[in-house]
Design a protein around this nucleic acid. Sequence first.
DNA 1: TTGTAAGCGTTATCAC
DNA 2: GTGATAACGCTTACAA
Lengths: 326, 326
Amino acid sequence: MPNIKDVAKKAGVGIATVSRVINDSGYVKKETREKVEKVIMEIEYVPNEIARSMTLQKNKIVAFILPNSTHLFFGELSYFVEQELFEHGYKLMICNSSEQIAKEIIYLEMLKNNRVDAVILLTNNDVESLIDKNRPVVSFDRRFEGVPYVASDNYKGGVMAAEKLLELGCKKFMFIGDDAQGDASSVITEVTNRRVGFNDCLNEHGVSDIVNIEYPLGDYIVSADYVRELMSEYKDVDGIFAISDAAAAAVIEEIELSGKRVPEDVKVIGFDGGRSFLNLGKKISSIGQSPELIAKAICSTILNLCNNKPVYDQIIPVYFFGGDTT
Amino acid sequence: MPNIKDVAKKAGVGIATVSRVINDSGYVKKETREKVEKVIMEIEYVPNEIARSMTLQKNKIVAFILPNSTHLFFGELSYFVEQELFEHGYKLMICNSSEQIAKEIIYLEMLKNNRVDAVILLTNNDVESLIDKNRPVVSFDRRFEGVPYVASDNYKGGVMAAEKLLELGCKKFMFIGDDAQGDASSVITEVTNRRVGFNDCLNEHGVSDIVNIEYPLGDYIVSADYVRELMSEYKDVDGIFAISDAAAAAVIEEIELSGKRVPEDVKVIGFDGGRSFLNLGKKISSIGQSPELIAKAICSTILNLCNNKPVYDQIIPVYFFGGDTT
DNA sequence: TTGTAAGCGTTATCAC
DNA sequence: GTGATAACGCTTACAA
């Protein structure tokens, strides 16, 4: 591989001049520039990005640490994050933690050892002490002291779900799904606000007897057995708000197996937008969050941090998606 | 950020010794090692990976160029690739091309400019001339001269689908889905073998009147309108093999809208394994390919290339997943 | 306008 | 066992 010296020698100029040409910086006489460009073509010179990173002490790579990119919403989010970063010349490193703090530690270390310029953090573990606060970090759906965050308007989402179920005439309400996941389940995330908003709104409407199920979702999936048990225990529930579409799907399947009909007997609202991959059945009614808007917010924060500009926490609006389960 | 010199100075040793300690290479006296390790702790020294990459001329980052990680199978594949690479200390850069050759070019350039050590290439575009054949590159489901590849046993998959439909008594067969996508649709991929295997097997069983529909799938999705048209044109078809589960889903939906029943009137087999995210309806019968096995094969090839070991093309077995559509 | 030279933070060679 | 020192390939003062 030819390097900048080879170009300089062959073009009969100094390496600084070559550098100016390839970076289009500083003054270079037109003829000199053309001469250099010709040589670059001839010997197929490509600047070495590692060396460039070495000098600049940054490499325009952003790490996205998340539980599992196979989860539809996370996958969509990472897709849009990549699109957005690409527009600005940044590359995306994908880091599936599987909620294991050990993996998160290794990936967070990349900030300190210069492997990446910035980190987007999506975790339920308490990794606050592991975060290098002097580096660009953005957190999604989770607050860490001194780390800017982006979140959907989860509280509003909970309120919207409650209002919708009330409007449809439901009498007995249930919330299902625990927001505390991962190795350290004591942590409170923004996602908690889904339940809080749901309960607050119902309370305001005079409903106080709400069934709140906090079921730890292994890998974001609800176990069928547990749901079955639940449904037989609370037979009179007719309005359910699930913490995610995945949880809602499990609930709906069990309800229908038990002989009840959705939405005739029980109405169910999920969270994430009701999108699916290859759904041949009912579409889930759901509180939607926009991966595209969230990605834009996350990336603008990351880019501002990388350029030493001020950043702000951002709450992204949610919307109601009317599917077949309400 | 402290560097290796700071450690050396504070520990009263040379930088070479510090390097030996952090890399656990060469001989270091026990006391010296402990002294150095103590200083490393004290000043919280972390080796700079960019500098390390500079010296080593490699950075243990692999790029995965693929159309769209939101597509379930691709998402699963990238998930397992990341897991596998992680085990070996490699990181994964995700590069959604959206089938745009322009993006592929930019991402492929990362091999030449040392941004990444290796590339996993999943494309339908003819980018052969853009590949740096001197660097580690593995291709999935697509052959490029001089580039090792991994593919599912697509031909066998086609045969299995045909056998299954024959076994179930189907009389009139259809294959739907075009394998040539992206900017350059003239390209032939391994995926073509799904159709070839399907047709060959049927021919061997004396069936020659096969409806082969080559419909260009924009972003891997089949248009409903087109399927509707198709179904009304070929009313007697009772056995369909679709190039992907996504295509199968579109077909099934239209068939049922037209009043026919699946699988009673028409049997449909897809390709990819019938997995879905949040499917509340029928499960698609499908020829399954294992993202985990494929990821393992891809990564072993990549790692061998990175370590100058010999590599071989690999064909991964497929299996039949019996869902609700046969 | 242009060239020289000083870093950037490692690893690795080679004396001691 | 250990420590200078030379790469690695680039950007960027600073001089000319």
